[in-house]
Structure formats: structure tokens, C-alpha cells
Design a protein around this nucleic acid. Sequence first.
DNA 1: GACCAGGCACATC
DNA 2: GATGTGCATGGT
Length: 214
Amino acid sequence: MKKVKLEEIYSKLYASFGPQHWWPAENSFEVIVGAILTQNTAWTNVEKAITNLKKAGLLDAHKLYQLPQKKLAALIRPAGFYNIKARRLKEFLNFFSAHYRLNLEKMLSVPVSTMRRQLLAVHGIGAETADSILLYALAKPSFVVDNYTKRILSRHKLIQSDADYAQVQALFMQQLKKNSKLFNEFHALLVRLAKDFCLKNKPRCAICPLKKIS
DNA sequence: GACCAGGCACATC
DNA sequence: GATGTGCATGGT
């Protein structure tokens, strides 16, 4: 059997769904906040928390840096795990202040490998959150792997079902051109596919765009 | 009323 | 090193 190329999958998904316009946010800082809030959480709940922050006029690095953690926790309550996430946001803001003076522009000039290492050193930021920040807030070509991605690739026999994050990411990074626009769209399309087909107990694979692959 | 959602850190074996 | 558990709200 001919080995399926990720590029082929991308083409099929893009042809079916078109551009996904990720990340849904007004600016890069909002992406970072959303990336932490969405950890194991439905996006609809994250939106409620983001709206609370916006209404309070606090969706701003300097203001959140000043805001007491308990008040932050109350505002992000709809996102769930609010005490944990308030702490994680604070941990990021402390790092952001100490290393970059709360200035996103300063992050852009840092090499992606260095930036990734720094983000992973922040308590509460793991591989997926780090890559989401790199790709969607800083436009760096670091592929985001989530559970949807793993499930889809596993189902199509492109990875072992127990493959870890680094293995799956390596597959994308090696096969594809390191292009942030491509990585951005591809990951968003995989999420779209998972939500529209793979998670529904419906006809699913019969009309799934990837039907012929595998 | 279960079960799940765009994870992560930590305990325990 | 693998496996299990806490964190918590809101939608289906």
C-alpha cells in the first residue's frame, strides 16, 4: 500500500472545508490567554471567560499582570478549572514580564526553538499550549498536536495509537514545509474534521473527506 | 445524570 | 517509565 502523504490529506481537507480562519481572537495576547483557558475545555466555555475579561476591560497583559489571582479566577470561572488556570495565567504573565517586559514584539525576534523551551519551562504550559502560542500568537512554524490529531492519524493508521506528542509532531514537521500558514490551516482543518465527522456516531467515514485514505 | 471538552502537573506504583 | 488522578464549568 502506498504510504499516504500528509500533504494529500491537507489538500483533501482544504478542498472540503476551505480556510478555517484560526485562531479565533482579536490579537496575539488574546490567543495566549485562550490557549491556556482551553486546556481540556470546550471552546464555548472559553469564549464566556474571554468575554468576561473583555467586558471588565482586563484582556491586556499589563492589567492582567496587576490583577489579583483570586479576581482573575472569578472572571474566568466559566472556563472550568478556574483556580488552576488563574495560576497558570499568572505564571505566564510573570515569565512574560520578567523576560519580555510584557511586550510581544520582543518575543518575535527569539528563535523558535529557544522560545519553545522557555514556554515549556513555565508551570502550566505543556507541549500543546506552547505550540499553540508559537503558531497562533507568534506565527512561528511549530505544529500543534492535539487529541483530535492523534485520533484521526491513528484511525488512518498513520501513527501508532500510543504515539506520544513528539512523535506525532515530528511526522508533520518532517513531511511538510515549515510554513506557519500551512501549519495553522492544517491543524484547524483536523479539528474541523474531528468535530464534523470523527466524533459523531453518524455515517461518518462514508462521507468523510479522508474516506479513501487508509 | 452520565459523559465529554482544542491539558497539565503530580502522586503512586 | 507507565499509569492514575485532581482540577470544574457548561453543553449534549
